[in-house]
Design a binder for these strands. Structure first.
Length: 115
DNA sequence: TGATTGACTATGA
DNA sequence: TTCATAGCCAATC
């Protein structure tokens, strides 16, 4: 404690702030989120934050996949294919744990937030 | 306090 | 192109 200023929120919370901005039917990567937070080398921490996101309602963790569009975190969701199911409901097609048209559906926080 | 872990990524063979 | 390895760094144990 005491590491952060009073107006500074936790790293996890900063991750969540970005994740909640991901539009429905779009996806992004852990690295892209980390980069938008100015911590491009902390992509693994974003994944860690997602692990803790279960106790944070409103955080669409299913819209976050790895850099090649693979649903590496699917096993952290209830059931066996909840992550894929949630994406399908938003119109995102998933085949063999990979997001189809990932390049088109990719939402880059650092770019979108600037526009 | 120190070692290990992990929903990642970049790089090299 | 695919596979293996090294770096990353905050949270956990």
């Amino acid at each position: 404690m005491g590491k952060y200023s009073d107006d500074t929120i936790n790293f996890f919370d900063r991750v969540y702030e970005v994740v909640v901005l991901i539009p429905e039917g779009r996806v992004t990567s852990y690295g892209a989120i980390a980069k938008s937070l100015g911590a491009s080398r902390s992509s693994r921490m974003v994944g860690w934050a997602m692990n803790a996101a279960h106790s944070r309602p409103g955080v669409p963790a299913h819209r976050v996949v790895n850099r090649i569009g693979m649903l590496t975190g699917k096993h952290h969701f209830p059931g066996t294919n909840m992550m894929e199911r949630l994406l399908n409901e938003e119109g995102v097609k998933v085949v063999e744990d990979k997001v189809e048209n990932f390049k088109q559906l990719f939402w880059d926080p650092s770019i979108e937030l600037d526009q």
